[in-house]
């Protein structure tokens, strides 16, 4: 999950934040890391660019992007499907 945190920091330009500052289960939006709707779109781009995964159902977004752990689980599940 450390690599994923680095990718999120780079993709979202979170220059004041280090990977270790982001908890595995810390909420990413609103009261957590404070990400916004544009960041959500950038996370979708990250999944496409780095993992060739397209978020098939937009309504899954809040569940998938809840925390770094939920994103990692989604990547693992869908990379296995691609493979």
């Amino acid at each position: 999950m450390s690599d994923l945190k680095k990718q999120i920091i780079e993709q979202l330009n979170l220059q004041d934040i280090k990977p270790e500052d982001i908890g595995d289960d810390q909420p990413l939006f609103v009261d957590g890391l404070g990400l916004d709707s544009i960041d959500a779109l950038e996370l979708i781009v990250l999944l496409q660019q780095h993992y060739k995964i397209k978020l098939s159902n937009a309504e899954d977004g809040p569940k998938v992007f809840k925390s770094v752990r939920t994103i990692a689980e989604y990547i693992t599940a869908h990379q296995n499907q691609v493979a």
Binding site: L12, N13, I38, D39, L41, E42, V45, Q48, Q49
Partner: peptide
């Protein structure tokens, strides 16, 4: 936009 357009 030549790859994946950046929302940001």
């Amino acid at each position: 936009t030549k790859d994946i357009a950046s929302p940001a």
